[in-house]
């Protein structure tokens, strides 16, 4: 009797197990498998242990790409989160303006990554691009294929243009969920606009802000398509971020072992930093996860 019951349970869990295995576990294990072996083709593999990991962690190339990546994500977060919050705060709360604003905000989010890259690649070109040509016409020496500053500025402005809307939409949803009684109470208390923001809106939005920070961090930390399309990682290696570097290593040089080791390290960094953000931003909630609000 008991045996049949166990079988039934297994059948019920099987689809989910299979799905997780195919989407996550098996591909991941393939990468882990590559990262601890060396191959000379012919499907011959040799065990090398942690050698590739040591090589990657000691490589200057990896360090440089990692620092570039951190600088990029930090800049993106430092601009998009406050900007998104500010736009959400100034958006209309009711009336026709709401839908107009929301649709306008959502538009950039609907454009595929590589199209965004292409748009900006052309837009910023010195010879025919509206932006590049105009800037140079104004006497500003702007050329994203030759100057590091220009390349970075282009990528950052492009990302801000593409993704700030996401932060706006999340913050707007958070704001809309605050009961009007809170604003009324603040008015009666004589609270300033700043106090309303600091003591009502910000704490009430902490959850959506966490989601916004996590999403924007993970996405910007793994950015590939846009720098690939716009700058190709250049000038020099100036915009060769981790994922661009990884693809160069894996596909350009066919160094599967080191590339696999780098993938695993990359993956662990994303998880670690996300966990750190989560822990820091929910520090207050853990003490007070009790009653309902």
């Amino acid at each position: 009797m008991q045996k049949t019951r166990d079988h039934k349970a297994l059948w019920l869990v099987a689809p989910a197990l299979l799905l997780v295995a195919f989407t996550a576990v098996i591909p991941l294990m393939t990468v882990v498998n590559y990262s601890v072996q060396d191959t000379f083709g012919n499907n011959q593999f040799f065990w090398v242990g942690a050698e590739w990991y040591r090589e990657i962690l000691r490589s200057d190339r990896f360090h440089a790409a990692f620092l570039r990546q951190i600088a990029f994500s930090a800049t993106i977060l430092a601009i998009e989160i406050p900007l998104g919050l500010a736009i959400a705060l100034t958006m209309p709360k009711k009336g026709l303006g709401v839908s107009v604003c929301l649709v306008l905000m959502a538009l950039p989010l609907l454009i595929p990554w590589n199209v965004v890259g292409t748009i900006w690649q052309i837009f910023a070109r010195v010879d025919i691009g509206l932006l590049g040509h105009t800037l140079n016409g104004l006497g500003i020496d702007y050329n994203y294929t030759q100057r590091v500053g220009a390349a970075w500025a282009t990528l950052i402005i492009m990302d801000v243009w593409h993704w700030t809307s996401l932060v706006v939409l999340l913050c707007y949803a958070g704001l809309a969920a605050i009961p009007p009684a809170y604003y009324q109470a603040a008015r009666i208390d004589g609270a300033s606009r700043w106090a309303v923001f600091r003591y009502i809106e910000l704490p009430k939005m902490s959850r959506v802000l966490l989601i916004a920070v996590l999403l924007r961090f993970m996405d910007s930390f793994m950015i590939y398509t846009e720098p690939f399309v716009v700058t190709g990682g250049g000038p020099g290696n100036a915009t060769t971020f981790l994922s661009v570097d990884l693809v160069k290593m894996a596909i350009g040089q066919f160094d599967l072992g080191p590339a696999a080791a780098m993938s695993v390290i990359y993956f662990l960094i994303v998880i670690l930093v996300s966990w750190a953000f989560y822990t820091i931003m929910t520090r207050d909630d853990f003490e007070s996860s009790g009653g309902a609000q």
Binding site: A181, I188, P203, Q293
Partner: peptide, 15 residues
């Protein structure tokens, strides 16, 4: 200088 209490429990959540 008015004090008011509502049906919802309105307090400053982070304080």
């Amino acid at each position: 200088n008015v004090a008011m209490v509502y049906q919802q429990f309105v307090n400053y959540p982070s304080l």
